[in-house]
Design a protein around this nucleic acid. Structure first.
Length: 477
RNA sequence: GCCGAUUUAGCUUAGCUGGUGGAGCGUGGGACUGUUAAUCCCAAGGUCGAGGGUUCGAACCCCUCAAUCGGCGCCA
């Protein structure tokens, strides 16, 4: 599969170091080691080097052939190409080496680029030299075989999870990581385009954002600290300084959930805005998700197609507005469908799933009952049974991808809400204190980046979109 | 925490009502002048997750344990 991205040659990446008008130093590519790579397989497959002599550096993906001609499929980060090695051209000694080359051997191959329909991708390299750089231990050949991949059928087996460090090299995982990078980039550019400031919160914290049972305890010089579940409380402290802020950072939750939607360490894109209403926050949520979808169409359409993803679906998510529905309407809808639910219950995954069946784009659920949500959600001034919050539910059964809303911002209200819940206030003292000095209405949301990746790629499991997934039973490799 | 499953070669698996564990991939050797997950021939590789029990006999039946997978609750 050709890659829609090319790597720039290093000469285009270097920058000039200047002081005033005087150019102090021109950074040049390192030379001498003969390890500078200037030509990428993706470019060769695009026809840029037809009939030219080139040097390709990469890894052997597969090899086949006979005693006189070998076909070595070479892989790099931009694609694959067939290299034709003939005994006549290259000599018996080298040919014997090529014949014995094992999968994932790293090599440098010189040769002439030949446009040939017999080769996958339309181009091949007719080799004039073949140099092994890093050999593969024949006692321990590359363990990921075709049968392992076929068995995984695009997903994962325990074996592939155990060999994740090697599985990353396969075309499917490479594609996932490239798409993931574009998702992160799209989120950054959405917020930066709107003058949000990227802001970092600590990962060691003293208190919980959600319920206390989902915290990871960490020994901390004789005390107990916790890994953060969310950037939010620390973002709210900086809200009066920055007014619009965001982050993409890991969050940690010690949930024993074993589902296709959960990780114990996940990447959390969070934002906080001063002077903002629930409606405005939702507009940003919709905006960032649609930006991610449109960026993937721009940057990664061939990769998505390579994964078998229907681009029309992704385009639908990029181009259409996301409907908003109150919790009460959702409950009524479910009750009309004879689903067993009572007012005041949080909507669990099975109920979300039933709701999302009726939508072909993501949709928001707003105004949950106060009793279903924690203290930091702002009570609706129009009806104190509800809070001004929202969840964004992805279609196709992928579930919640955003949770957010307005925050309880007056000191009086937040103390009342904490008392009502019976939540101890010690760990939140700094948070409460911020309310004593010019509190303003504000809000924000958290977006599960991995969940968005899983949904937009159509992955069967959230593990497929993160390089080294962490769940309740796996911290290795 | 709860419910349901799985565990046979490096990997993926077949193995019927209990009667000497087969194959594909990978690896090693051989054949083949253009292959497309190349093909063909040969070979090595297994205390059937661990322990105990029933039985003349256990991969298969029973018990205990372990590891793993899927789902629920909760969440992103």
């Amino acid at each position: 599969m050709p890659n829609s991205h090319r790597l720039k040659p290093i000469s285009e990446c270097t920058c000039k170091v200047t002081k005033g008008d005087i150019e102090l130093e021109k950074v040049t590519p390192p030379t001498g080691a003969n390890m500078v790579k200037t030509i990428w397989i993706g470019d060769v497959q695009s026809g840029k080097y037809d009939d030219q002599e080139v040097e390709l550096k990469g890894w052997v993906k597969r090899a086949r052939g006979n005693n006189n001609i070998r076909f070595v499929v070479l892989r790099d980060s931009t694609g694959t190409i067939q290299c034709v090695v003939k005994k006549d051209t290259i000599g018996e000694e080298l040919f014997a080496e090529v014949k014995n080359v094992l999968i994932e051997t790293s090599v440098i191959i010189h040769g002439k680029v030949n446009a040939d329909e017999r080769a996958d991708g339309g181009h091949e390299l007719v080799a004039s030299s073949f140099e092994i750089i890093g050999a593969v231990n024949p006692e321990k050949p590359f363990p990921i075989t075709e049968s392992a991949m076929a068995a995984a059928d695009g997903g994962e087996t325990e074996f592939l999870l155990d060999n994740r460090h090697l599985y990353l090299r396969t075309s499917r995982m490479t594609t996932m990581l490239q798409i993931r990078s574009s998702v992160f980039g799209a989120i950054h550019s959405y917020f930066r385009d709107l003058d949000f400031v990227e802001y970092q919160a600590p990962n060691f914290v003293a208190g919980a954002v959600e319920g206390g049972s989902t915290l990871f305890e960490v020994p901390y010089f004789g005390r107990t600290a916790y890994l953060t579940q969310s950037w939010q409380l620390y973002a709210e402290a900086a809200m009066p300084a920055l007014e619009r802020l965001y982050t993409i950072a890991p969050s940690f939750r010690a949930e024993k959930s074993r589902t296709r939607r959960h990780l114990t360490e996940f990447w959390h894109a969070e934002m906080e805005v001063a002077w903002a209403s629930n409606q405005e926050i939702m507009t940003h949520g919709e905006g960032v998700v649609r930006r991610v979808a449109s960026t993937l169409l721009d940057e990664r359409s061939s990769e998505l197609e390579g994964l078998g993803r229907d681009l029309d679906l992704v385009a639908r998510y990029a181009d259409n507005p996301y409907p908003r529905m109150r919790y009460d309407e959702a409950v009524e809808t479910l009750q009309a469908m004879n689903v067993d639910i009572e007012w005041g219950q949080d909507l669990d995954y099975s109920k979300e799933k039933i709701l999302t069946q009726d939508f072909d784009v993501p949709h928001f659920l707003t105004h949950y009952p106060k009793i279903a949500k924690p203290f930091y959600h702002r009570v609706d001034p129009d009806d104190d049974n509800y809070v001004l919050c929202h969840d964004l539910l992805a279609p196709e059964g992928y579930g919640e991808i955003i949770g957010g809303g307005e925050r309880t911002w007056s000191e009086e209200e937040i103390l009342a809400r904490l008392k009502e819940e019976g939540t101890p206030t010690e760990a939140y003292q700094f948070y409460i204190d911020t309310r004593s000095y010019g509190g303003v209405p504000h809000g924000g949301f958290g977006l599960g980046v991995d969940r968005v990746c899983a949904w937009l790629t159509g992955a069967d499991h959230i593990r497929e979109v993160i390089p080294f997934p962490r769940d309740s039973r796996r911290v290795t490799p």
